[in-house]
């Protein structure tokens, strides 16, 4: 069986702001982020990103804030339009989809979890989880059944009738995860889902997530600014800087063969023995 990439990016560029075409030409010629801001008043969000994510992989995108990792994630389900490049998800050219097919893709095949949960505050936990199904036009009985099932999966049975503001941050994010799983998508997009939680809960949710992702085998694109988190849960890691993907590799490759000082500076921050333990745990 040949391995089939589920998500494929080819030369994706994103330029925010005015003078897109001129800035784009400049950027292709090798101008840096600072150059482009100075010359065109435009911000280089993503520069020439290319990688492929295989089925069942947990692929982490790691970078500091402003490195373009969340922007890149939003291109997968086309919440943002790239300036140039090709994006293929589950065999479909995302950029060629009309609005109806795009909405189908989002509602049925790609789930997303957000840093600030982004739950609908006026709906109960149950209706929040069922939202993707409601958008799709599913019947109430099925929405409620699926909703209960997914809430059980994330350990929140019994909270169906509560409102999001009645739950703690960690619980809210588990609701977010249940919502992402509601339509049984093949792909999960996670935008720093645990970074606004306190460290203990974060650790706890990371473990739960790793267990869940093994169990469900979803292809996951996971954005984080935390190297330890990337190494704990990622089967592969891409490191971004100023909109460019500087290195892609397994956690072991990243730690043992950092391509440059930038990557090395992340790796150095991690206690060596902890890291070895993590790597041994990863199959």
């Amino acid at each position: 069986m040949t391995e089939q990439p589920v998500i494929e990016l080819e030369g994706v560029w994103k330029i925010h702001g005015p003078n897109g075409a001129a800035a784009m030409a400049d950027a292709r010629a090798g101008a840096t982020k600072a150059d482009i801001l100075q010359r065109h008043g435009a911000v280089l969000g993503i520069a020439d990103a290319s990688f492929a994510v295989m089925r069942g992989e947990v692929f982490c995108i790691m970078g500091l804030s402003g490195s373009g990792k969340s922007t890149l994630l939003r291109h997968i389900n086309r919440l943002m339009e790239p300036t140039a490049g090709r994006i293929r998800v589950l065999g479909q050219e995302v950029l060629a989809l009309d609005s109806r097919s795009l909405r189908r893709l989002r509602a049925e095949r790609v789930g997303m979890v957000f840093q600030h949960m982004a739950l609908l505050p006026h709906r109960t936990v149950r209706d929040n989880v069922a939202y993707p199904l409601e958008v799709r036009g599913e019947a109430l009985s099925r929405r409620w059944a699926v909703s209960s099932e997914k809430l059980q999966l994330v350990g929140l049975s019994g909270y169906e009738e509560r409102f999001p503001h009645e739950l703690s941050g960690g619980m809210q994010q588990r609701v977010g995860l249940a919502r992402a799983l509601a339509s049984d998508p093949e792909v999960l997009l996670m935008d720093e889902p645990f970074s606004s939680l306190d460290p203990l809960i974060r650790r706890d949710l990371q473990d739960q997530f790793v267990a869940l992702s093994r169990q469900l085998g979803k292809t996951t694109l996971f954005v984080t600014h935390d190297m330890e988190e990337a190494i704990r849960i990622g089967s592969r890691v891409a490191i971004m800087k100023d909109g460019r993907v500087v290195q892609v590799g397994t956690p072991a490759e990243i730690v043992t063969q950092p391509v440059d000082d930038y990557v090395r500076s992340f790796v150095q921050g991690i206690a060596r023995d902890r890291l070895v333990a993590e790597l041994e745990r990863t199959p």
């Binding site: 919440l79 189908r104 957000f114 982004a118």
Partner: peptide, 29 residues
């Protein structure tokens, strides 16, 4: 209306009308 909530609704495939009736109008109530 928090932009993040609108983005989430879009990410789950909500159309413009669904966004308006399901998210924006209730929150702007």
């Amino acid at each position: 209306v928090p932009p993040g909530v609108c983005e989430a609704a879009r990410a789950y495939g909500a159309s413009d009308w669904q966004l308006l009736y399901g998210v924006e109008l209730p929150l702007a109530r």
